[in-house]
Design a protein around this nucleic acid. Sequence first.
DNA 1: TCCGTTACGAGAGCGGTGCTCTCTTCTAGA
DNA 2: TCTAGAAGAGAGCACCGCTCTCGTAACGGA
Lengths: 221, 221
Amino acid sequence: MTEDIKRVAREHLATEGADLSLRAVARDVGMVSSAVYRYFSSRDDLLTALVVDAYDELADAADEAERAAPRRDPHARWMALARGIRAWSLAHPHEYALLYGSPVPGYQAPEDTVGPASRPQLLLAQILRDAVAGSAVFPAPGDRLASGLRADMVTAAEFLDLGDVPAALVVRGLVAWTQLFGALSFELFGRFEGGITDADALFEFEMRAMSDYLGLRSAAH
Amino acid sequence: MTEDIKRVAREHLATEGADLSLRAVARDVGMVSSAVYRYFSSRDDLLTALVVDAYDELADAADEAERAAPRRDPHARWMALARGIRAWSLAHPHEYALLYGSPVPGYQAPEDTVGPASRPQLLLAQILRDAVAGSAVFPAPGDRLASGLRADMVTAAEFLDLGDVPAALVVRGLVAWTQLFGALSFELFGRFEGGITDADALFEFEMRAMSDYLGLRSAAH
DNA sequence: TCCGTTACGAGAGCGGTGCTCTCTTCTAGA
DNA sequence: TCTAGAAGAGAGCACCGCTCTCGTAACGGA
């Protein structure tokens, strides 16, 4: 039953967006609204369940896309990861907005979303780790990091299990990650409406630029 | 009266966020909800007015910050612009979400927002134009642009009145712009909660990286 | 001065929302 | 067979956006 409600809610999410109505979902399931509260303690609770599912779906899709790239080619893996994330996001714009858009008013993402939320980042972390281990990354220039920034990067490196990845590369990974989701947000939230017609080409350019910025080596690049 | 309503609505926006209630605004103004409809034909109409105002405020703040930087130092101007945009955004998180966050469900930004929406971008355009005119930019490497992407950049260059700025630099400007707003969205939408403590330092690093990427020359850089 | 027009606001009401409370029914286990 | 608990129904509360009607006050022209 819980799965039934989530399924219908996902459909509503896909068509109407984040302002899904618990009553409408209940109607579609064939229940009265109060009955839904047997399974979800509130509308936010239902939303949280969808958020967690969406993170997992995104991570699965990205993981699968990334796995198709040759293991020893970090550039190809990065591009595959980025394309995989974008493909899922374009196919699920409302879910994307839920995950990476403005926070739903009055909705505070609870603790149990941070685990799933970090899964996509772990995929990039793994690429960087493998690249460093396999010497498939050009040595990062000696960026001077402010002490607070360096400390944050060390913490992040521990959290993401980035063994030998230097802090200077970690922060560059964060820059690339920011670029990726900035690009997706621009595209999905309609900021390209007036002007950009070839969003595919722009995205490819951006991700290639980030690959260069990360210093990822590639067989054919 | 219209200004009165907008003022109160802005206050509500600052405290509650995008789900502002027309009735609550009316109460605070001292009117009954139906009276508000004399001034705004719908809640979306009121929201649009706030959006336009917010774009203008942001552009004004960014413009003022940018003007404080030396005219012939494009790096300093870019950093000042970025810092100005960030400062306004941190001071007005809900407005930022309204402008650059996920689209409000069921709300379609009407035509009259595209003008104000392009104002901030024009500030970057001016920096690039001056930098090229004053030879204060390292020649952009010969990035190969896909034909569709090149065409889009030419169109954008016309729209933004970028005279001699080459397409390869225009697209880099777009990359930097994307990075800027990606960073702000991450910060403002709470994606830094677990880990980043020195957001200032990270932002400085990112914007400096983008300045390098753009090839902006600086007296002391 | 009188009258008609117009702007402005109040009020009731419609259908929708999230959520709570109470009540009934149904089912599984002792 | 009896009982405890789960599951759903229904009514109701306070809120929402929005529409319609009505009263009032101000103003301009004859």
